[in-house]
Structures are given as C-alpha cells and as structure tokens.
Amino acid sequence: MVKPTVYGIPQSTYVRTVRLLLEEAGAEYDLKPVDIFSGETKSPEYLAKHPFGKVPTLEINGETIYETVAITPYLNTVFASDKFIPSEPLHQARMRQIMAIIDSYLYMPAIRSIFIQRVLVPSQGGQTDEEMVAGAIAPAQTAMQAIESLAVCEPYLLGNELTLADFHLIPIFVYFSATPEFETATAQTPKLRKWWSEVSQLPSVKKVCA
C-alpha cells in the first residue's frame, strides 16, 4: 500500500480528524504542513490540489482527494476495512447526522466564535469580543444537545466501536474544552461529558491533539 500524504497544519481540527483515523487504523502516512495563516493555501501550487484553498487535502496513488467528508470514508475503506462506519443502517444514519451537526451547527459557534475569541485572540495580544462569545453559547448548546440525543456514549458516540463521528467531534472538544464556556455548553449533556472523559485518554488523541 502506498503511504498517503496529508496536507495541512497539525492544529487544524479537520486535519486532526483525518490523522486520528489513520492513527487508529495503524496506517503510515506523511503530514506535509501547509501554512493557512501565511497564505500558502492560496498559492497556485496548492490551489491545484484544493481549488477552495482549505485543509486537509489527501494525496495517494497519484490521486488527490479534498473535503474531510470524502477523505475519511475513503481512508476507512482502504486502511481500516470499513471498521469505522457502522454496519447497521440506522447507526450509519446517526453517524452522518452527528457529523453534519458538527460541521453545520457546532464548529462555527464553538471554534470560530468561542475558542478563537476566548483563547486565540488574547494569545496574540488582542481583546476578546465578549458579545460574539455570548452570542455563540446558545447555538453551541443546541448543537451539543442535538448530538447528545443521538449518541449512546458507551463508551464511544455510537457504542463500543469508534466511528467517523468520534473522529469529527474529538478535535472540536479539544479546543472547546479549553474555554470556560465549555462547562455551560455541556451542562445538559452528561453522556457527552462521559464520552469526552474516555476518548481524551486515547493514545491516538494524545499523539495527534497534543
């Protein structure tokens, strides 16, 4: 099997999603940093791989795949014999629901609004936009509660095996849990809090998300 190359900065949540799958599959891969902050993703060379200038991008066997929702199912088939997608159709649907909630309703308030304003902006000498943070708490809570209603968390989101949904949510929790708003957003989601206490100790999580 040809070793794949993952393009993207290690700090990216979606790069981490891809890497968590590869680590759990025991697959060898190369990580090629692409600096999203210096404009490297907008270079002609990178835009030839990903026309929207985002990360991650996967190269394997002379082919390029972009968008995490396309990359992870491919890697799951090629490197993990489909073990990270449930075999039962309803569980597959729940997995995809959770992933869609993360992408459409959780990422923006939890990461773009709360984490960046509460942690990243001050670390660079800026001042937190408290109004933006306050306005993001309710949407984050709604998304958390929606995931809580679909998940079983015994111990993983959909049962006793990791799925693509876990790989999508773990990097969000890594960052979101570093903010004081995390406690408020998860106050009504005890299953997710239990899930986080379990998955945060996985060796793959400690390696990829350190």
Rank of each mutant, 00 (worst) to 15 (best):
residue 70 A to Q: 03
residue 152 V to D: 07
residue 129 D to P: 09
residue 83 K to G: 06
residue 110 A to H: 09
residue 184 T to L: 10
residue 142 T to K: 14
residue 53 G to S: 06
residue 51 P to H: 11
residue 106 L to W: 11
residue 43 S to I: 13
residue 210 A to H: 11
residue 186 T to A: 09
residue 210 A to D: 11
residue 1 M to S: 12
residue 169 L to C: 01
residue 56 P to W: 02
residue 78 V to M: 12
residue 98 I to K: 02
residue 147 I to K: 06
residue 132 M to G: 10
residue 75 L to K: 12
residue 16 R to C: 04
residue 32 K to H: 11
residue 176 F to M: 09
residue 159 G to P: 03
residue 158 L to P: 06
residue 41 T to Q: 15
residue 168 H to W: 11
residue 204 S to I: 05
residue 20 L to P: 04
residue 192 L to I: 07
residue 76 N to T: 11
residue 99 M to W: 08
residue 58 L to P: 07
residue 32 K to S: 13
residue 13 T to L: 06
residue 131 E to K: 15
residue 103 D to H: 14
residue 77 T to W: 11
residue 201 Q to I: 00
residue 187 A to D: 12
residue 185 A to R: 08
residue 35 D to A: 13
residue 133 V to A: 06
residue 159 G to Q: 07
residue 136 A to K: 10
residue 199 V to Y: 00
residue 141 Q to P: 04
residue 181 E to Q: 15
residue 111 I to D: 02
residue 48 A to F: 03
residue 70 A to C: 14
residue 5 T to N: 04
residue 39 G to V: 11
residue 142 T to N: 10
residue 124 Q to I: 14
residue 121 V to P: 02
residue 45 E to H: 10
residue 77 T to N: 12
residue 4 P to Q: 06
residue 168 H to K: 11
residue 166 D to A: 05
residue 138 A to H: 13
residue 23 E to N: 05
residue 168 H to V: 05
residue 6 V to D: 02
residue 149 S to V: 08
residue 36 I to R: 03
residue 46 Y to P: 08
residue 40 E to V: 09
residue 152 V to M: 03
residue 73 P to D: 09
residue 123 S to H: 08
residue 142 T to I: 14
residue 150 L to N: 05
residue 98 I to N: 04
residue 182 F to Y: 15
residue 128 T to N: 09
residue 114 I to P: 05
residue 158 L to A: 07
residue 97 Q to F: 14
residue 173 F to R: 00
residue 64 T to Y: 10
residue 33 P to H: 12
residue 99 M to S: 08
residue 153 C to V: 01
residue 208 V to A: 06
residue 138 A to M: 13
residue 52 F to M: 14
residue 4 P to H: 05
residue 153 C to I: 00
residue 99 M to F: 09
residue 36 I to A: 03
residue 11 Q to S: 11
residue 182 F to E: 10
residue 36 I to Q: 07
residue 117 Q to V: 10
residue 19 R to T: 02
residue 151 A to M: 03
residue 115 F to M: 08
residue 116 I to Y: 13
residue 182 F to V: 09
residue 196 W to V: 02
residue 131 E to R: 15
residue 65 I to C: 08
residue 190 P to C: 03
residue 123 S to Y: 06
residue 154 E to H: 06
residue 200 S to L: 06
residue 141 Q to W: 03
residue 68 T to A: 07
residue 155 P to A: 01
residue 206 K to G: 04
residue 205 V to T: 04
residue 163 T to D: 09
residue 85 I to D: 01
residue 153 C to D: 00
residue 54 K to D: 04
residue 85 I to A: 04
residue 110 A to R: 02
residue 57 T to H: 00
residue 134 A to F: 10
